[in-house]
Simulated assay, not measured.
Amino acid sequence: MLDLVPVGSGVSPTDALAASTALARRADELGFTRYWVAEHHAMPGIASSAPAVLIAHLAGATSRIRVGSGGVMLPNHQPLVVAEQFGTLDALHPDRIDLGIGRAPGTDQRTARALRRGTAPLGADDFPDQLMELVSYFRGDGPVLAVPAKGARPALWLLGSSDYSAQVAGMLGLPFAFAHHFSAQNTLPALALYRERFRPSAVLQQPYAMIAAAVFAADTDAEARRLAMPSAVQFLQLRKGNPGLLPTPEEAAAHPLSELDEAFIADRMEQQIIGSPDTVRDGVRELLDRTAADELMIVTAMHGAADRIRSYEIVHDALVGTPV
């Protein structure tokens, strides 16, 4: 499960974080494998700006499920700080922490510069060096001693939405998580490149790929589409440079749309799995068959906390015990 901690219209960040905590507990009860939180900044409708803080809270609120970052955007942070944070998390919750690393800033350049307190433009060109420095702190041979990072073993993943991180993950022999939920057109080329470039490592002997897909489930196809529409409208507004709160289904239905807007939303929802239990089961089977992914991560942004929990329950019931 991937959670952006959506902040809906009429909902406070406190409410959104409480809803995500309840969702994580339910995921733990249902037997989901892992629960990741994203890093986004300067977006009113997303409350997951501090992954390490949120991971500590969610891991403390659960007992079994792995909790991690999907991901920490490394250009925003000094590798030493990330190593110390995730070394601490690993010490607090051994064998339950995942460290997903991305190379994009996850925000605009102005906000990214504020995060790093620098004036130079921030890019991803130095990502390999940053990544190697981060890994060195966990090995204990970094530029300085990182406590308690030395010897810590958070599971390291590389995240991507294009072919760059796919190549790096393959060459380093690391597991790779691809953002199918917002870059579906690049999924198959990136996975193929990851597998082609994969080199065995101390971490993995064979490539291991996960895809993150948007899934919206309800009792009927029509109800699932009604509950999925707010996320599509919110994403449309983001692409127009106007990020905002996640609207209610009623607000989304009443949102004025041009023909281009309608086409954009239709195309986005076409790439998602939306529907009843049978529709979701068939959609997941088709996606996994097409991608040969080893693991599926589900992202579901719904305005109603109860609707979101119910969506994951439907997905669980539709898939558990069924070969996919």
Rank of each mutant, 00 (worst) to 15 (best):
D98G: 00
V53Q: 10
E133Y: 11
R66Q: 08
A91G: 10
Y137K: 04
L58G: 01
D129N: 05
D28V: 03
Q109E: 13
F86Q: 00
A112E: 11
V67I: 06
P143V: 13
G60D: 05
P121F: 05
Q85G: 03
L89S: 00
A83M: 09
A155S: 07
E133I: 12
D28E: 10
E29T: 14
R103Y: 08
V81S: 06
P51T: 06
Y35S: 02
V135C: 13
R26N: 02
V67T: 02
G100L: 02
F138D: 07
V147T: 14
T62H: 04
L134C: 06
A146N: 13
I65L: 09
M132G: 08
W157I: 06
L58D: 00
G31C: 08
P121L: 12
R110Y: 15
G123Y: 04
L145H: 15
V144W: 15
R110G: 09
V82W: 02
E29L: 13
Y137S: 00
T111D: 08
L131R: 01
L74R: 03
D108C: 06
L159N: 02
A27C: 05
L156H: 04
R117I: 12
A52D: 13
D141T: 13
G87F: 10
H41T: 04
P75Y: 04
A112N: 11
Q109L: 12
V81L: 13
I101V: 15
G100E: 03
R139F: 11
D98M: 01
S162M: 08
S63K: 15
R116G: 09
S136P: 03
Q109P: 01
I97A: 01
A120Q: 13
A47V: 08
I97T: 01
G118C: 14
L99H: 04
G123S: 10
A59S: 04
L58E: 00
T62Y: 05
A124W: 14
V37L: 00
I97E: 00
G60H: 05
G160I: 12
V135S: 10
G68S: 08
A91S: 14
R113A: 13
D141Y: 07
I65C: 06
L158G: 05
D108M: 13
S136D: 06
D141I: 14
A56E: 14
G142D: 10
P121Y: 09
P154G: 00
A50Q: 01
